Each structure stands twice: as structure tokens, then as C-alpha cells.
Amino acid sequence: MFVIHGVANRDRDSFVNAVASLKAASGVEMVPVYWGDLGAEDRFINLTLPPAAAGRIEATGIELRDRGEAGPDQVDASVLLSVLAAPTDRRGQWNTLEAAVRARLTEDAEVSGFDLRDGDAERPDPDEVLEYLEEEWPETQWLCRTDDARLLLETGRSLAEALIDSADLNDGHEELRDGAGKGRGLRALVRRRLQDLDRVVGAAIQATAGRINHALRTGFGPGTTRFLGDVLVYQRHQAAIHARVQETIAAVDPALGRTPDRPVRIVAHSLGGVIAVDMATATHPLWTSSLLTFGSQPAFFHACDPRGGQLTPYAGDGAVVLPESLRRWTNLWEPLDLLAFIASTLFRLHDGTPPDDIPVSHTASSGLWTHSAYWENPDVAAAINTAMNTP
């Protein structure tokens, strides 16, 4: 049985040792197929990643302070997702905001605990406030893009409290209480307070997004960028990589994989699975009696860009039938592996049965980047033993 590695393998000895460990755990004889020296140049990838400072509040150029008080420097994940996701439910958004504003402007001040220094100060009319708010709301950069109920409720309440605050209504804003300037003053006050809230929320969202971006790039960036680099190299130098696989197999037995009666057995990780499927379904195929892939992408690649050879494009009205040159296929995937895809929904073997998609357990020691954790996962070794010993 031959083992083809996936992306970001640049150390032949480490790969050979990993195969030896997998061989010992599964009890199946294995021959490593190394092609990492043909992969992407990845020594300088980190130079292309934005630095951590790009996510810092100071780098956003947005003033966090409103009337002398610092705004929040992070937001709940649900708020971040609601702002970045699209489209926003405009009707539901406005209903929530309107309810919050109206409730705060009409509730009893003593019950709410909000102390008005000027007891005879007149509260703004809710309908008038909402009229101005509806005009100004589309001009916000951040608030108008969220349908997070909590953020909308807090925004509406904060705005209403600012409007009934005696410091805003009485100190220097006499035009809000009488005369022709009342409407203009209230409108200006709504605009100013809404802009303050929008600016603070925007700064918090950008700060949180920056930290998440940096954390994801630190945790997932090296693996995903090396994956993309090797994919690009494979697309350009597919023939050379296939030749390396053929050379390794021929070194064991030149007749292996050449005819239906001398098929090979292959285990492949990640992009190695794409290589194995491409070779097994080529016009002049590598005859494969049993293929086991883990953390691999053949179905994803074929759905995005048909692989050619003996495979027909997926048209959405029936699975793609694999040729007889690929007789059996077991596909393993780990729940947290972002680069693992299932195969049974897209493909059918020549006898009409789907490939076996089998989830493997997540181990806490593997952390968040689980794409390279299969090699030491006992579920993988057990699946290899089963697949390769099935007639």
C-alpha cells in the first residue's frame, strides 16, 4: 500500500516517520510517496500576512471617546456576525429600535431611576424623535447594518436617555423647548447622539474584528496559505507530481497500477487525495483497488472545476460515476477540519454505491488546526486496517 501526503510537507524524514507510525498502528504494510520538494515555496508566506497592529484600535483612526468616556473595545460575537453578514432584516431592525426608543421615552422617570435635574423639563415626543431617527438611521455606517436585538435595544435606549437628559435638554439647548427652533434642535441632537453611538460601536466592531482576524491568521494562516500554495503548484506541475508517484510505485513493482489485474492500494492525506483520485480516474488511469483519503478535497475540487479524465462534470441532477479503475473509496473527515470534505454526495462508484464517508473523532490535543492531526488519530489507523483488509 502506498501513502501520498498532502500539503505543507517539506521534511521527507518527518513524513517517513509519520508513515512508519501509521503502519505500526494499523498493521498494514506501507510505502511512503514523497513529493513535498515539488510543492510551493513557503518560507516567506508570513511576510504577506497583515501584522497584529492592523487590528489594533489605534490603527483604525477612529476616536473611541464620547463626552470624555471611553467606548467599549470589543463586542459580542453575535453582534460582529450580524454586522458583517448581509442582508439585514430592515423591518425587524426598525421594529426593535422603535420599541426601545418609545418605551424609554414614555416610561416613568422615577421608576426607571433616571433622575431629571429639572423636574418640569418636557420630554421629547416619541413620534417626533422616531421621525428624525428614521431619517438619520440610514446615514450610520455600522448600526444600520445590524439586526442584533440586544445592540438595537441598547442603542435605542441610550439614544432616548440622552434626549431626556436634562443636561442635553436644558443646558445650552433652550431652542429644544420652545419656539420655531425646537424641531431643528431636536433633530440636530438626534443626529449628534446617533453619530456618537455609531462611531463607538464601529470602533468596537473593528477592534474585535481585527483581533479575530489576527487570531485566525495566527492559528490557521500558515496551514491554509501553504495549502493554497501547494494547490497552485499542483495545478501547474501536475504531470511532475504524478510522475513522482508513478516512479515510487514502479520502484516496488513496475507492473503495479498499470492494468486491472495489478491494482494498487493507496492512502492519501489532503491534497494527496486529490492526486490519487486524479490518477485513478485519468484517461490512462492508475488502477486502484482501494483508496482511503483523510482530510481531503476531491469532491470540492470537482464541484468547483471538473477534474477531467474519465470524470464527467457534476450537473446537479445525479452523482458523478467513478470509473472501474477506482474500485473502492473510504473518505475520513474530522469535524473541525476546515479542509476536509465529504465525497458520497457527489460521487458514485462504478457499481452504483457511494464512497464511504466516515467521521473521525476530534482529540483535544490537536487544538483548532486539526488538518494535520489525522496521522496520530487511532480512528484513522483502525479505518485503514479495515479498508485495506476488505476483499
Rank of each mutant, 00 (worst) to 15 (best):
G6L: 01
T60L: 10
L292V: 15
D127V: 08
S365F: 11
A319V: 08
S158W: 10
W137R: 06
L271S: 01
P51L: 11
A162R: 13
G119H: 06
G316I: 09
S78Y: 07
L22E: 03
F15A: 04
W369N: 14
R258E: 07
G309L: 04
G55P: 03
D89A: 14
K182S: 14
D198S: 11
A303F: 14
P355Q: 09
T225W: 09
A240Y: 02
L105A: 01
V33S: 02
A255P: 00
V267H: 01
E136N: 08
S325I: 00
P378M: 14
I358A: 12
V83F: 10
R102N: 07
P51A: 12
P50Y: 08
T363K: 12
S82P: 10
A20T: 13
L151T: 14
V360R: 08
T155A: 13
E139A: 15
W137A: 04
E134R: 15
I62K: 04
P87W: 11
E131Y: 12
F301W: 12
I205P: 01
L153P: 00
A149G: 00
L151P: 02
G309M: 03
L133W: 03
D76H: 15
I275E: 01
L232M: 13
L159A: 02
H242Q: 13
D108A: 09
V380C: 10
D66L: 13
P391H: 15
E154T: 09
L339I: 06
R265M: 05
R265N: 05
A204E: 05
V252K: 03
A343G: 01
V7I: 04
L49S: 07
P323W: 01
N385C: 13
A40H: 04
G39Y: 02
N213R: 12
V267C: 07
A53L: 14
H350F: 06
P87M: 11
D115A: 13
V267Y: 06
V245N: 05
W35Q: 02
C304Y: 11
D171G: 00
L81M: 14
P354V: 14
